[in-house]
Amino acid sequence: DIEITTNGEEDAKRVIKELQKRNLEYHIEVHGNQWVIKVR
């Protein structure tokens, strides 16, 4: 598993777009303004 910590929603959406392009499965956890994306 890979864990990507982003700085808020805009940053997270940019990362998610890339993950979707590669058809990767991911899970999002929001901790305040930090979005942690866990990639399987």
Results as ranks from 00 to 15, higher is better:
Ile4Asn: 01
Arg14Met: 11
Thr5Trp: 15
Lys38Leu: 11
Ile2Phe: 15
Lys13Glu: 08
His31Ala: 06
Ile28Pro: 00
Trp35Arg: 02
Val39Gln: 01
His31Gly: 02
Glu10Pro: 05
Ile4Lys: 01
Lys17Glu: 13
Glu10Asp: 11
Val15Tyr: 07
His31Phe: 11
Asp1Glu: 13
Ile16Phe: 03
Glu25Asp: 12
Val39Pro: 01
Lys38Asn: 04
Lys21Met: 12
Ile16Trp: 02
Ile28Met: 05
Glu25Leu: 13
Lys38Trp: 10
Arg14Cys: 11
Ile2Lys: 05
Gly8Pro: 01
Leu19Asn: 00
Arg22Met: 15
Val36Ile: 14
Glu9Tyr: 14
Val36Thr: 07
Glu18Cys: 13
Ile2Cys: 15
Glu3Lys: 10
Ile4Leu: 06
Ala12Val: 06
Asn23Gln: 10
Lys38His: 12
Val39Ser: 02
Arg22Pro: 02
Val30Phe: 08
Glu10Ile: 08
Lys17Asn: 09
Thr5Glu: 06
Thr5Lys: 11
Ile37Ser: 00
Lys21Pro: 01
Arg40Asn: 10
Asp11Arg: 07
Asp11Tyr: 09
Asn33Lys: 07
Glu29Gln: 07
Asn7Gln: 13
Glu18Arg: 05
Glu3Asp: 07
Val39Trp: 05
Asn33Ser: 10
Asn23Arg: 10
Ala12Tyr: 07
Glu29Asp: 04
Asp1Tyr: 15
Leu24Ile: 12
Glu18Ser: 06
Glu25Ser: 13
Asn7Phe: 14
Asn7Cys: 13
Thr6Val: 15
Arg40Thr: 14
Ile16Glu: 04
Lys38Arg: 13
Arg40Pro: 09
Asp11Val: 07
Asn23Thr: 03
Lys13Leu: 14
His27Glu: 14
Lys13Ile: 13
Asp1Trp: 15
His31Trp: 09
Glu25Met: 12
Glu10Gly: 06
His31Thr: 10
Lys38Cys: 07
Glu29Met: 08
Gly8Ile: 08
Leu19Ala: 02
Asn7Thr: 11
Ala12Trp: 04
Gly8Leu: 06
Gly32Val: 03
Ile2Asn: 05
Asp11Met: 12
Ala12Thr: 06
Asn23Met: 08
Asp1Asn: 12
Thr5Cys: 13
Val39Lys: 00
Thr6Arg: 05
Val39His: 02
Glu3Leu: 14
Asn7Gly: 06
Leu19Pro: 00
Ala12Arg: 03
